[in-house]
Amino acid sequence: MNHGLMRIMELKVQRSSPGVKLEGELILAPRSLIGLYGPNGSGKTSLMKGLAGLLTPSQRTGFVWMGGETVDLSKVGSDWVRNVLYLGSDFQSPFHVSLREYFEMAAAVSKGGIHLELGSAERTRIALVIEAMGLTDQLNRSVQALSDGEKQWVMIARGLIQKPKLLLLDETCSKLDLDRLIQVASVLKSSIVEDMCIWLSAHDIRFLAGISNSILLFERTGQVSLHQGGAASIHALVERVYPGLQGF
């Protein structure tokens, strides 16, 4: 039996009625990229935050199997971020922090905690990711000086440096320009991803279908279902999520 990198079982998040539920079991293979698609308020962010352990314990239930162990999601603490990392679409830093410092903090978390000194493996990882993403000559820039699109680009780099088992990108590509969208598709499918799995939510179904191995479809009823990607299925997915939409 293929256990994959991670198995998510009976995941349910209840922030408001009706809540959002991923029934059964979802097996995540290494280097797989799953797109999350659905209307506003259908629970994409809630499900990702619940899986990342960011909501209160009573709001998230379910189990995650990985590395031979089953973890109860309602009991995970702040160190869960080493396994599942959630990144949103923006961040606001009120202070001057250089990109180098930002990436070094992320790399320290990947080693075991933000307080740890970086080793050669973490430094190699930083160098690899920033080169792949064309950020080598940008390391002394302040995060305060970045545009919204540049921030998202830097956040994706940070996610890859931090290297969780599951990286959740919640509309983290929404402000990227066309050039960067093409690049991100290439980077997220490259060897840099190693043994990670990535979830990416977006409202551009063509982009998602083109980049993902499969798509998690969110409906307003709170139901979530997995569909295989590919351009041919776009029409059916959109009609299912937006049944009243005509002339698409």
Partner: peptide, 13 residues
């Protein structure tokens, strides 16, 4: 330093 919302993403309570 990366904003209050980002604190948990560095494994800090």
């Amino acid at each position: 330093l990366m904003g209050i919302d980002g604190v948990p993403s560095f494994g800090v309570s």
